[in-house]
């Protein structure tokens, strides 16, 4: 019984040891070849290539700086790989090598361009073929394989007519007619219609969004508030109020009586309007004019606000 157990343990040990031994053997083999890191930057899409198209892939090879690439091993432009003595229709169009050195490694960047010289009436699988480049150094020479890259070559034209209804694949799903363009057109038309209606409303509303809003004195009041406290600001404020009276009355006006005759709503402001005209005369025409406000700028702001209130129907 004890012997049987020893046999089992021995078998178990043998079973566990044999893969390790194989692994050690493989590691020893790999250690013989210097490590070359291969990175391939391939075209973004794999389909939709036609005859004449040029595909470019960039391959980066990193190797210890004890080894150098052999330029004679690089792919030669014009070459075409054969498979079973038959040309594959993918020809090397250009091959460009650049190199740099960093962190004790030689970095080779190989830019390979291939041109498609084959076509078919149906989509055809193809591949940028594997390439082999050689390195030498440290008394050794070895080659590495740049892996191939698969893609599809599309036909230039579909042969014969295609009846979609006979090609009802459940995997494909129903064919939908895109309504995006019509939806966008409708949205744009609705937007234009809305803007037009808003514009019409604004125009019919005497260029104001709300009744009695945005009148000449409301605009004048906003501007008068912003005028500076110097003489220029005073002149600007008075001119602005004259404009407002002109717009409100529909003509140039030169006295309080004229304004009240045209706009009786301003009757409560008659005294102030007369003071305003006296101030205007003093500023623009006759400096000897009497009866002007002591602090004209604040007074004008207050006056324009009262005019705006009258304009809005307030007493």
């Amino acid at each position: 019984m004890l012997g049987y157990h020893r046999l089992n343990i021995l078998l178990l040990v043998l079973c566990l040891a044999s893969p390790l031994a194989w692994s050690a053997d493989e590691t020893g083999k790999a250690a013989e070849l210097p490590p070359v890191t291969i990175t391939a930057n391939n075209p973004a899409r794999e389909v939709g290539y036609h005859i004449g198209d040029i595909l470019t892939r960039t391959v980066t090879l990193k190797v210890s700086d004890q080894y150098q690439i052999l330029p004679t091993s690089l792919p030669i432009p014009g070459n075409q790989k054969r498979y079973r003595n038959k040309e594959q229709g993918i020809e090397i169009y250009a091959s460009k090598l650049s190199e740099s050195h960093r962190d004790g490694q030689n970095i080779y960047t190989l830019e390979l361009s291939y041109q498609v010289f084959t076509s078919s009436i149906v989509a055809k699988p193809a591949a940028l073929p594997p390439e082999f480049v050689k390195f030498s150094g440290n008394g050794k020479q070895f080659q590495v394989r740049i892996p191939s890259w698969n893609f599809r070559i599309s036909p230039l034209a579909v042969y014969g007519s295609v009846n979609v209804s006979k090609d009802m694949s459940p995997l494909r799903g129903p064919l939908l007619i895109s309504a995006d363009k019509h939806r966008q057109t409708m949205v744009a038309a609705l937007a234009i219609l809305s803007l037009s209606l808003l514009g019409l409303l604004y125009i019919l509303g005497n260029r104001a969004w709300l009744p009695r809003m945005g009148g000449p004195f409301a605009r004048a009041y906003r501007e008068v508030r912003k005028t500076s406290a110097d003489n220029t600001g005073l002149e600007t404020a008075i001119s602005r109020l004259h404009q407002a009276f002109k717009q409100s009355c529909g003509q140039s006006v030169f006295s309080a009586d004229e304004i009240i005759q045209l706009k009786p709503a301003f009757t409560p402001l008659k005294d102030d309007i007369e003071r305003f005209f006296r101030l205007s005369r003093a500023v623009f025409f006759d400096s000897a004019e009497q009866g002007t406000p002591d602090n004209p700028n604040p007074w004008l702001r207050q006056f324009s606000r009262r005019c705006r209130d009258i304009e809005r129907g307030m007493k």
């Binding site: 004259h242 404009q243 003509q251 140039s252 030169f254 205007s280 623009f284």
Partner: peptide, 8 residues
């Protein structure tokens, strides 16, 4: 003319 032209 008088009604249209602004003085100030």
């Amino acid at each position: 003319t008088i009604r249209t032209i602004s003085a100030a």
